[in-house]
Design a protein around this nucleic acid. Structure first.
Lengths: 279, 279
DNA sequence: GTTAAATTTTTCATATTGTGAAATACAGTT
DNA sequence: AACTGTATTTCACAATATGAAAAATTTAAC
């Protein structure tokens, strides 16, 4: 009968939770779950602890921590080494966490580009984004060289002492940059780390001008890193690509060649995600 | 007085949980936590779902699921896209899960799996990776039989005449495969060795389709080998597990049984290193 | 070998708190 | 403006998470 064309367009947005919802939340959390997650989170930082240590550190009763761990163990989120009686993060936690990467196609798009970059430069290639004022490494393709840079995906690193971090900071708008600087003290990791805001500011200026960032042993002695920003459709720097290796192979003479490759890779990825370099 | 030097050596092993502990566990889990983790786990599989969908799928009350999600959100384990009202895995989950990688060694993880594989098939089980266009054998668990296959850890072998090699080649992307083929001539070791690139290509096609590779006396006369690929977090084939033995015991009739065991072992190892089969 | 010490599990009584049903708030749709 | 299908909150109650302390288990010391 009614041949009325159902529009059948999925609603843009569901109905219910207020758009700006952000404040309350406090009463609606589950306390025991939150405590359990605190254990989970803490374990990821200090792996290889015995139960008693964890309980002490977290100021919880051993019985409770024990039950939390056993429960998580049942799902593979946590592992128990029965030889040493120590607790670790389990493989399932990694698989679940990796679900985060699937949200954006950034990693998928980046992977072949990173591989090519690694092959052309011979050094480990990395992809990172900013997350809560830190650099979060999402993925990497390792070099075959036996001496190599290594920070596994999932590592959080300070922005001011990281190639990708500086590449991202250099393209942050002044407002946010100021807030970022105010929010923290610039910790020194080596004698080369830029700890003066002014020095960092000047460096970022340079970085922006030349199009790539250099981390010259500012985080780890003996390690250099060259990074370039990746732009999204709004011309915002949302990620960074870098190449890192020992100073011996990343000498200043090699900078020009390598930086060219890095910038090319970053541009390629920008294009691949629908973004583009600022003209 | 007592100048007795306190040994001060940390105890090798704590005391308490029985060494073989494995069975009970059932009563000591926290139900609500386990339910919450079920939500967490499910979300990682089907990201971008609205609350109502998750609640339906998991057969839980929306209120409960809601509270679980809000709690996890508080720790960044989960994220809510308020534009679309959809839930996702959060960055913190990735960071925590990545803790797993900090202590995972392929060989360590493989060892118990290889042993079980050997026991179930009765033949020598091997683990290998690709190294500069060759297969590098990392580890093996030998059979008790007196006639046995033997290649010690550290052995390098041509990929085209090796079960593991072919399993790896079969899952290499076309680009890399082409380059690999161009880079070498396919040496003949026996009259069965595949020396024609076309023949090898067809074989790899088959290998991919059935999920395991067969080396039928292609390297050593009288020796057969069945291998399956191990995938890492990027769904790339990074290693292979194989079982090898004399043709007498590895007859075609036995192929089905053995290949099943090999594939199971490979999948188990994939899971154990945080990877997984392509869906 | 025996005992002591250290650590992990289990038990148990209790109150905390997680739970679902149903009411309410909200954003689109008609 | 009323309606509809979501997401939140309320509420009353039972489920169950909890810590203290006991038991179990292993290692180290004697």
């Amino acid at each position: 009968m009614e041949s009325v064309e159902k529009p059948d367009i999925a609603p843009r947005r569901a109905r219910g939770r207020p758009r700006d919802w952000a404040d309350k939340t406090a009463q609606n959390t589950i306390k025991s779950l939150d405590r359990a997650m605190a254990v989970f989170e803490y374990l990821s930082e200090v792996q290889g602890q015995p139960l008693s240590q964890l309980a002490t550190d977290l100021q919880q009763s051993p019985a409770t921590v024990y039950r939390i761990l056993v429960t998580l163990e049942g799902r593979g989120l946590v592992e128990f080494d029965s030889e040493e009686q120590l607790w670790y993060i389990g493989p399932r936690a990694f698989v679940i966490g990796a679900g985060f990467l699937r949200r954006t196609s950034l990693v998928d798009r980046a992977r072949p580009i990173l591989r090519k970059l690694m092959e052309r430069t011979g050094e480990t290639a990395n992809l990172g984004v900013e997350k809560e004022g830190m650099v979060l490494f999402l993925n990497q393709v390792e070099t075959h060289e036996s001496i190599r840079a290594f920070f596994p995906p999932g590592t959080l690193s300070d922005m001011h002492a990281s190639g990708i971090g500086k590449a991202l900071l250099a393209h942050m708008d002044q407002e946010r940059l100021k807030r970022w600087v105010r929010g923290r003290s610039l910790q020194a990791f080596t004698s080369y780390t830029l700890v003066q805001p002014e020095a960092l500011g000047a460096e970022l200026e340079q970085t922006r001008a030349r199009g790539f960032a250099i981390d010259a042993e500012e985080k780890n002695l003996g390690m250099r890193c060259i990074a370039a920003p990746v732009f999204d459709m709004n011309r915002e720097a949302v990620a960074g690509i870098s190449v890192s290796g020992p100073t011996s192979r990343m000498a200043p003479e090699a900078t020009k060649r390598i930086s060219g490759e890095v910038m090319r890779a970053a541009e390629e990825l920008s294009t691949a995600i629908g973004g583009g370099q600022v003209r």
